[in-house]
Design a binder for these strands. Structure first.
Lengths: 221, 221
DNA sequence: GTGCTATGATACTGACCGGTAACTCTCTTG
DNA sequence: CAAGAGAGTTACCGGTCAGTATCATAGCAC
């Protein structure tokens, strides 16, 4: 115990109280209508930071601070940073397929148009100067440990995408659907990775034409 | 100073000496004929570890230990870890173009064969189960800081590669050399990145056929 | 009111990070 | 033999890492 002026101040500083001004501020912020839960804020912040700065470059402390909460709330909602990363990718997988299926259902029975729409979406994403490629592929580059919980999410996602492409190419009547699907896959992955080295004005900007030409060549055969 | 038994032992422990056995071992290893310099060992070890485990995943201490030396030797030969990373990529750039030019000079005036040979090399690399894609592209994913010394190395490398492809496609007589070059570039980058998610049996294994078909389609036009 | 749940705040652990100081040893070159 | 360069060794620095313990508080349900 330390004697300060005429008041007793407990040495354990987690017992010291914030000023009244601070208290009122926090109370106000907490009462904000529709304020997302701590879990949601942490998840959203982590998703953004992982994508923009990279997984290893972002610490849990930074995530918590940026989400306007503390590390304890992070660890109350997620078992570990690795699991938070895996969760982020799981959610990305879910929304990816949601978008994909919505797009596909707009052109039922027309795989050609579906693929065209998919590449249009990709072209749009790849033209965004803030984009930093595919979260899955980037994570695969950063995470080399075979046992990391995110790895199976990544591999499953990419395997599913490849299978979908094969399916579409088959429906389209391509003579070598496997080859065409892989070619399209390589174009997609290439576009996402090149924007990180040559930007939106690099090879990625030709992604739509590139895919069209490839499909035409296959269907001509 | 501490009195231990009847001998004076300086408290500063960096003055404590290793056992005679340790000394003899180190002396022997040091005298090994043709043992590369500390700098070389550090550089080689760092290159391998950065590539296989990732840049951020490898600490300077680990590099030094794996190179059978210490951190001090690392910092005597390289100003910082960031510069060591940049050096690694600079060397990769140099050997890349050495290989490329050697390959190109084997088929002078025949850009078609040159490209075929380039993709054959890529196919071989991509089939290696230990390969982890392109060091440049991987580094670009890991390094998000705009000021990092490695960034300009990466961007210059990829820009040069793209320019070379355009040049070759032009020589080949393609009607849209820029488009063909970008398509080939996307295939290359895609192949390197997909082996990290779907392995050598993924889409990357069709890289040679994919490029051939693309070139054929362009030349037919 | 009384709990209960979610959240907040702070301090702490042990490990590791990149980077440096200070000193010793050995080999080479003159 | 002397001088210098290259290399090795250990301890240390301040900072950050992921993860935990402990207590406080605010809102809600009953």
């Amino acid at each position: 115990m330390i004697l300060t002026g005429n008041s007793l101040v407990n040495q354990r500083s987690h017992m010291t109280k914030p000023s009244n001004g601070q208290l009122r501020l926090r109370a106000l912020r907490k009462r904000e209508a529709n304020r997302p839960s701590a879990r949601q804020r942490i998840f959203d912040t982590a998703s953004e930071l992982f994508y923009l700065k990279g997984i290893r470059a972002v610490g849990v402390e930074t995530i918590a601070a940026e989400a306007d909460t503390t590390k304890m709330s992070l660890y109350r909602n997620f078992p570990s940073k690795d699991e938070l990363v895996a969760e982020w990718l799981r959610e990305h997988d879910a929304t990816f397929w949601q978008t994909w299926d919505a797009m596909a259902s707009r052109y039922p029975e027309d795989p050609r148009r579906q693929i065209k729409a998919a590449f249009a979406l990709l072209a749009k994403h790849v033209a965004d100067p803030k984009a930093r490629g595919c979260p899955m592929a980037n994570a695969a580059v950063e995470i080399t440990e075979k046992a990391h919980p995110a790895r199976k999410v990544i591999e499953a996602h990419k395997a599913k995408l490849r299978a979908r492409l094969v399916q579409m190419c088959t429906q389209m009547g391509a003579q070598e659907p496997g080859l065409l699907a892989d070619q399209l896959f390589l174009l997609m992955e290439g576009a996402q990775v090149t924007i990180q080295t040559l930007g939106a004005r690099g090879p990625a900007r030709n992604i739509a034409r590139a895919s069209k030409m490839l499909i035409d060549a296959h269907l001509r055969a």
